[in-house]
Write a protein that binds this DNA or RNA. Structure first.
Length: 552
RNA sequence: GCGCGAUUAGCUCAGCUGGAUAGAGCGCUGCCCUCCGGAGGCAGAGGUCACAGGUUCGAAUCCUGUAUCGCGCGCCA
């Protein structure tokens, strides 16, 4: 609808240039927005004001010329000049009926667009070290990454979801040593558990499981045994992680192993490429990357003087490999405590000849768990985080995912476990899902009463004239642009806010008007309207990974 | 010390990339069930958008500075 108006305005602009009522020939981008105040119509444009300088005329004069050129456009019921030079447009109510037909035609694809033109995008998220179960913070990253991926898909990008497995560094070696120590402990030895070892109970479980599956491990030399423990630990923890994520409704297209970069000599090869480009140099026995050339505040070490690569080295290789795979846009989801690493990674990307913005890093802030408004933490024993699994089991995947997406991902989040479980309008998840269930309930009712259901293309919608009905239709029309905005900015919370507003408008409508009334035409039209609401609620919830239940 | 991010209603937060009278939820106050699910809805009170300058037709939004808070600054991962 907005695009249609945009074309009309562009045409009018050309008309003005042609008949010399405007002279500059400068065609600005035509900005159209939905004004906050309904009195200003359905759409408004600041075009006249942005042209004022080039035209050397007052905005209101320009607006008058433009409005004259728009002439009697049949789908516009009113065009007004207001304030400093806004042009306000009110559309014929019948225009909004088309939105309902559009939704009915596209069903679950309403809101999808070609905005991304099939460009390949990779979203890498979670990527937690395979050294223990996922905790609540990982959960937020998971929910955000998955929703961003879904939103990008809806906006017409070709998206791949990837998990980067840090299976090469010291962290997994520590996991191996921790398991080995617990294993010896279980065999009756007295051991000193390493200070940096992983304290969690799950280490004991892993040790016990390993002895059971392969008792010969105890006979190995220390070094071999630890290696065995490491491999066993990583394999098992990854299975847990995958299961936790699956129960959270998330699957990945690819699990990318850091170790595989070394196995395939990728790190060495990619580092050689950087050296060829003169981006790295040796100093004090170490190999440095010249990240300061691209905005970092100091150069970074790739290979330490003892010859071993830094974590940064494999990260560089990994990101080079991502672009080699043909992704035009690469999105990383990180914990906000890593924000200091953004400049150096952008520097790498820039050094490779890409735009720094081809890599986008989403920083995920902390989750504060609350219970009835009071901070909730597990016992303070080290290694004893609140796991994602416990929370999902307590409040359910839907509530959990919705809450994780309610705020901008870079701002901290209060997550009240009791509130998330509540079956009332206090609870935003419930409130939105309930709106969907309510529409379904009305439809069930209609069927029981033998009311014929509306058939798309064959409905008289002229009885949809109440302000709240037009308001709903207009809001449904804004869904596709909401998805595009969320995709452009990687901001799933926009979809959440959209949902809350749509649900609120629907509940309000429901409370004022009955859908199933005596007049058959009105009933049909209203059923058609709320079916549109139902479809959009379901589509938006799906993008967030939240179910749209038919009854609750 | 340097860098990054924040600062909007009592609380938690939005604010559509610079637009018109700054919004929502919670909490508070007062209302609405002869009604398809009241598991809802309506109304009210509540603001110097941290502060001071600047940019322009126009600033919560962009720039500079100040204050407060948080985080990051390893040849750790």
């Amino acid at each position: 609808m907005k695009d249609r108006l945009r074309r009309q305005i562009s045409d009018a602009l050309q008309t003005c240039f042609a008949n010399d009522t405007l002279h500059s020939g400068v065609v600005p981008e035509v900005q159209i927005e939905v004004p906050g105040n309904p009195e200003y119509g359905d759409f408004s444009s600041n075009l006249a004001m942005t042209m004022a300088r080039a035209e050397k005329k007052s905005p209101r004069q320009i607006a008058e010329v433009l409005v004259a050129a728009l002439g009697g456009c049949e789908f516009l019921s009113k065009v007004e000049i207001a304030g400093p030079g806004f042009i306000n447009f009110t559309l014929m109510p019948t225009c909004w009926y088309e939105v309902l037909d559009d939704i009915a035609a596209k069903r679950s694809h309403y809101g999808f667009s070609q905005f991304g033109r099939g460009r390949r995008v990779q979203v890498e998220f979670v990527s937690a070290n395979p050294t223990g179960p996922l905790h609540i913070g990982h959960g937020r990253g998971a929910a955000v990454g998955d929703a961003v991926a879904s939103i990008l898909q809806a906006a017409g990008f070709d998206v791949q979801r990837e998990y980067y497995v840090n299976d090469a560094g010291n962290q997994v070696a520590t996991l191996g040593r921790s398991i080995w120590m617990r294993l010896r402990e279980q065999n009756g030895e007295t051991v000193v558990f390493p200070e940096d070892g992983y304290q969690g109970e799950y280490i004991r479980e892993l040790a016990a499981k390993l002895i059971e599956e392969d008792p010969s491990v105890t006979a190995l030399e220390e070094e071999e045994a630890v290696k065995r423990c490491t491999a066993f630990g990583v394999d098992n923890v990854l299975v847990w992680i995958a299961a936790d994520l699956k129960d959270f409704g998330i699957t990945f297209d690819k699990w990318f192993s850091e170790q595989s970069l070394f196995d395939r000599n990728m790190v060495k090869n990619e580092l050689a490429k950087l050296a060829d480009k003169g981006l790295s140099y040796e100093q004090n026995g170490a190999l440095w990357l010249r990240t300061t050339d691209y905005g970092d505040d100091k150069d970074r070490v790739l290979i330490k003087s003892d010859g071993s690569p830094t974590y940064f080295a494999s990260d560089v290789a990994y990101h080079m490999e991502k672009f080699d795979r043909g992704f035009e846009r690469v999105i990383d989801v990180w914990g906000a405590d890593h924000h200091g690493y953004v400049p150096r990674m952008k520097a790498v990307v820039a050094g490779l000849g890409h735009q720094p913005d081809d890599l986008e890093v989403l920083l995920i802030q902390m989750v504060n768990l609350l219970r009835d408004g009071k901070p909730y933490t597990m016992g303070k024993r080290s290694g004893n985080f609140v796991t994602l699994r416990e929370v999902v089991e307590e409040v359910g995947s839907d509530a959990c995912r919705f809450y994780f997406l309610m705020r901008r991902s870079d701002s901290q989040l209060d997550f009240d476990l009791e509130l998330a479980k509540r079956q009332s309008s206090d609870n935003p998840v419930f409130y939105v899902q309930y709106a969907h269930a309510r529409v379904c309930s009305i439809y069930r009712n209609a069927e029981e009463q033998g009311v014929p259901l509306p058939k798309p293309g064959d409905i008289d919608l002229s009885s949809l004239i109440l302000p709240e009905e037009l308001l709903l239709a207009k809001y449904l029309a804004r869904y596709p642009e909401t998805v595009i905005g969320a995709a452009q900015n990687c901001e799933p919370h926009r979809v959440v806010y959209y949902l809350q507003e749509l649900a609120a408008q629907f509940h309000s409508y429901y409370n004022r008007q009955r859908v199933l009334v005596d007049d058959p035409a009105t009933t049909q039209a209203r059923l058609y309207l709320i079916d549109g609401v139902r479809t959009v609620l379901a589509n938006a919830l799906t993008l967030l990974g939240v179910k749209a239940p038919e009854r609750m």
